[in-house]
Write a protein that binds this DNA or RNA. Structure first.
Length: 764
DNA sequence: GGCAGCGTGATTTTT
DNA sequence: TCACGCTGCC
């Protein structure tokens, strides 16, 4: 236990009874967990296969296993149960499927599959999709599941009316017929098994684990917590690790009270707080603290660091998102010049839509990068189709897959025919596949022949699957179905890309086979499909020297030498949805900002653009309220891109930085301050617009790609500015006010003088 | 039955 | 801005 601080030691040494570890950002959490597991095995003779460790992503699971391999040896750690909630539950269900009415070959449906299922149910029930948008319906159903409520347990309320109950029932029925589960089912069904008092399986499961550990505990939801408690009930050796300040998934059901109220459920629990940050410089830690400090209801913690203050946190204001991208580019180039490896540099944004400009900027300079998340590989149409064949082969009951492939590539089986099959199926409460023989008798000779040919094709492929491994199977599938041929004949660039993607899919299968071989397991189709279904965004991140672009959510648990945090504007971060945001949501945005800041080890560059193109419209955006919370003496504010290129690095702080700080009226709402400060920028009116002065040897960023937008022009709103309003059209600003929100009085032709919110204006 | 074009609509964060 | 769905046409 050398090299651990006192609280870390305490957490590692604790070997019996409940334990709650509050692990501040960068406080060596993973280290503590791995040491603790190693310690249990080595010092307390706990058998590895009796330890369950739940992580947040597969990547985290893999890293934990790797570290443990080094600590205790692969032979020892091989039997450990390490994985995400979903992966662990899937594993349990592959074993106890019969307990909950599944077949062993059940498939996991992703969002689009689920939506397809629900839409069919809705159409059958004649439900108006406008009154009940499928996406929302699905969301509500999931919420019920996360509370552990099946269709029969739901209490009808305003947010869940009787129509929804009917749809929930139909959805569940369809999923079971298809022998399919959704993500929530994985957890819910596992809970059902463990909580079933009569079943032998439950007894077995409760006995199974001597120790249960949960990482990122602040992001567990109600049903996950229930599962963990049930699994740990017998031995009560439950160790949960997390940080309520980093709870950023409440929108998908995460319940912070799990961690904040842990002590109520386990009064005898030992509580350890890890508060020393080993990751970041002093300035970064102080900035993070300053941003999280105003949060309500947080468990008191004092994150500190022994490290030097380091470079100040840079905050830059740019006039547009394109200039922001150019700025990010120059920061990255500077870091690269200083030999920071590209994979130690990350660019964060609040929403994926922001990635595009950044990506273009990086590409224009040939900087290697990878985007984490966004449109995922496995969601591409050709990949989904190929996988659908595999899934149908493995699980013929999977209706969503049957419908997807029955006429892809086109084999003359039209919608009418498919409908016929599916109505026959639902009349008999069976799946489409089983209904084919009956349905076919009602079809004309032509369609009948085609459907039977398809049936024969799948049967043949099923025979292949029985004797061949997954990679052979995919080759056969692509050939025999004519899918590859279809793409080959099409000589468009698109088709080429699709063929390449299919090759990549084959590559992923080969990789899977290699992995299983290394783990000493048999590769099989079902486990490959499961793995594909449960990959998380960060799992796809590769270690190559590439700059990483990702959302802040995806960044949780990661760290980088240099971090560029972009889009720090009101509306964007904190993100404002359609119906404004509740205080709770705002709190979560604050925690999200805290997560973002604490990812940086050495350099943190925050930027905000005063205009940004959002959904095809250029809008004025005020700086994020979170910027006003940054400690003035740990941060350095830059007005424009050119400033940054000006040496020396440690010149005196510029006086105008106080514009951002909340010094004048501490009791005033921060939002008001930060917006007012930004919008009444005195410099803006007097700012020199000439060429920036450069010191010798200083490189100017290449703005070629951006030269249609001159820097620092047409950005400020002030008297005389020409603006555009969606309804009123062109107008001239008469005055700008700030009473919480920035409002503008402007004269519009045909509408006269109107007072409007600045956020609804764009430059004209 | 299939395709192309158009218009519409909406547009976080993800296992 | 873009993705999707619908409609109308071949």
């Amino acid at each position: 236990m050398t090299g651990l601080n006192e609280p870390q030691k305490a957490a590692v040494a604790h070997s019996a009874g409940p334990l709650l570890v509050f692990a501040g950002a960068g406080s060596g959490k993973t280290r503590v967990i791995t040491y603790r597991i190693a310690n249990l095995i080595a010092e307390h003779n706990v058998a590895p296969h009796r330890i369950l460790a739940v992580t947040f992503t597969n990547k985290a699971a893999g890293e934990m296993r790797e570290r443990l391999d080094k600590l205790a040896g692969a032979a020892v750690t091989r039997d450990l149960w390490v994985g995400t909630f979903h992966a662990i539950c899937a594993k349990l269900l592959r074993r106890y499927y019969a307990e909950v009415g599944l077949e062993k070959t059940f498939v996991i449906y992703d969002d689009s599959d689920q939506k397809a299922v629900l839409k069919r149910v809705m159409r059958a029930a004649d439900t108006d999709e406008r009154a009940y948008p499928p996406k929302q319906v699905l969301g509500r159903i999931h919420r019920q599941k996360r509370q552990g409520l099946g269709p029969a347990d739901v209490r009808v309320s305003r947010s869940f009316d009787s129509t929804l109950v009917v749809l929930y029932e139909g959805y569940e029925k369809a999923m079971r017929i298809a022998n399919a589960v959704d993500f929530e089912d994985l957890i819910l069904l596992a809970v059902r098994i463990v909580e079933n008092k009569e079943s032998a399986a439950a007894q077995e499961l409760k006995e199974r684990f001597d120790h249960v550990m949960v990482d990122e505990f602040q992001d567990t939801n109600t049903i996950q917590y229930r599962l963990v408690r049930a699994l740990a009930a017998r031995h009560e050796n439950l160790c949960v690790v997390g940080d309520d300040d980093q709870s950023i998934y409440s929108w998908r059901g995460a319940n912070v009270t799990n961690i904040r109220g842990f002590h109520r459920d386990f009064p005898e629990a030992k509580i350890v707080k890890l508060e020393q940050n080993y990751r970041s410089t002093g300035n970064i830690v102080r900035s993070a603290l300053a941003v999280i400090a105003p949060a309500r209801d947080r468990e008191p913690k004092k994150l500190w660091t022994a490290q030097e203050p380091g470079e100040p946190v840079h905050v830059r204001r740019l006039s547009s998102e394109r200039l922001e991208a150019a700025e990010v580019l120059s920061v990255i180039q500077r870091s690269l010049r200083r030999d920071v490896p590209a994979n130690e540099i990350a660019v964060f944004y609040r929403i994926h839509a922001q990635s595009r400009v950044l990506e273009e900027a990086l590409r224009s300079e040939g900087i290697p990068y990878q985007i984490i998340g966004g449109m995922k590989f496995f969601e591409r149409a050709e990949i989904k189709t190929a996988l659908a064949y595999l899934r149908l082969i493995d699980n013929p009951r999977s209706d969503a897959d049957l419908i997807r492939v029955i006429n892809t590539p086109t084999r003359g089986i039209g919608q009418k025919t498919v409908e016929r099959i599916m109505t026959t199926a639902s009349a008999r409460s069976s799946c489409g596949w089983d209904a084919i023989d009956t349905a076919v008798s009602e079809l004309g000779a032509g369609p009948k022949k085609k459907v039977l040919a398809f049936q024969g094709l799948i049967q043949k492929l099923r025979e292949v699957a029985e004797r061949a491994g997954p990679h052979e199977l995919i080759t056969e599938v692509l050939e025999r179905t004519g899918f590859r041929e279809l793409l080959r004949r099409d000589d468009s660039a698109e088709a080429d890309a699709r063929l390449e993607n299919l090759e990549e899919l084959r590559g992923s299968i080969l990789e899977y086979e290699k992995d299983t071989a290394e783990a000493g397991e048999e590769p099989n189709l079902a486990s490959y499909l499961e793995r594909v279904a449960l990959v998380s965004v960060v799992d796809t991140m590769d270690d190559a020297p590439k700059v990483a672009l990702m959302t802040v959510h995806a960044a949780k648990g990661l760290e980088f030498h240099t971090v560029c945090l972009t889009g720090m504007e009101e509306e964007v971060f904190p993100y404002r949805g359609i119906d404004g945001d509740s205080p709770e949501e705002l709190e979560e945005e604050r925690r999200l900002a805290y997560v973002a800041i604490t990812r940086a080890r050495t350099e943190l560059h925050i930027s905000h653009a005063s205009t940004r193109m959002i959904f095809g419209q250029t809008r004025y955006l005020a700086p994020s309220r979170f910027l006003a919370d940054l400690p003035p003496d740990a941060t350095e504010f830059h007005e424009s891109a050119y400033e940054f290129e000006r040496p020396p690095p440690n010149r005196n702080p510029r006086p105008e930085r106080s514009r951002y700080s909340s010094s004048s009226r501490p009791e005033a709402p921060r939002y008001e301050q930060s917006t007012r400060l930004a919008w009444r920028s005195p410099e803006a009116e007097t700012a020199p617009t000439g060429e920036p002065s450069l010191a010798e040897g200083e490189q100017v960023v290449d703005y070629d790609a951006f030269d249609d937008i001159p820097p620092d022009q047409g950005v400020e709103i002030r008297k005389g500015s020409k603006v555009m309003h969606k309804r009123f059209g062109k107008g001239i600003v008469e005055s700008v006010e700030n009473d919480g929100n920035v409002t503008v009085v402007a004269r519009f032709r045909g509408f006269g003088t109107r007072k409007v919110l600045a956020q609804y204006l764009s430059p004209a």
